[in-house]
């Protein structure tokens, strides 16, 4: 499996990481190396195997619809790198009302 530049860039974009030119090659090589290693899973016959999703065996225990207290605005904002009044402040978002 070959990790070409385009694929590597699209991964970085999804992961929201940017690497400088010299780092880029290094990361790409490491990714290539590890993918070659894990390729050994192809030896297994997995057609009829049910994939494990969660390590807990029992069904989810549900929570009653009862209120607990919220943390309070000041605590929630206490670690914010930038705040404006009661809000977290972030750079301007261009598309109003639209998330991807």
């Amino acid at each position: 499996m070959e990790i070409d530049d385009e694929l590597a860039r699209s991964i970085l974009k999804l992961a929201k990481l940017k690497l400088r030119g010299d780092e880029f090659g290094e990361y790409r090589r490491r990714l290539q190396e590890i993918l070659e290693y894990v390729g050994m899973l192809d030896e297994l016959d997995l057609k009829s195997v049910v994939p494990t999703a969660c390590a807990a065996d029992s069904s989810t225990i549900l929570r009653d619809d009862d209120g607990t207290e919220s943390s309070g605005r000041d605590r929630i904002l206490s670690n914010a790198p930038s705040r404006a009044g009661a809000f977290f402040k972030v750079p301007r978002i261009i598309d109003q009302g639209g998330c991807p």
Binding site: L12, A15, L17, V38, L44, V49
Partner: peptide, 27 residues
């Protein structure tokens, strides 16, 4: 490195070949 690998194995087109396979191997 690990975020990059993890993002890759979940990516469309690679999910079945890596992530799903690993979940089956885990079984």
């Amino acid at each position: 490195r690990r975020i990059i690998l993890g993002t890759f194995v979940l990516g469309s087109g690679y999910y079945d070949a890596f992530y799903l396979k690993a979940r089956k191997a885990r079984t």
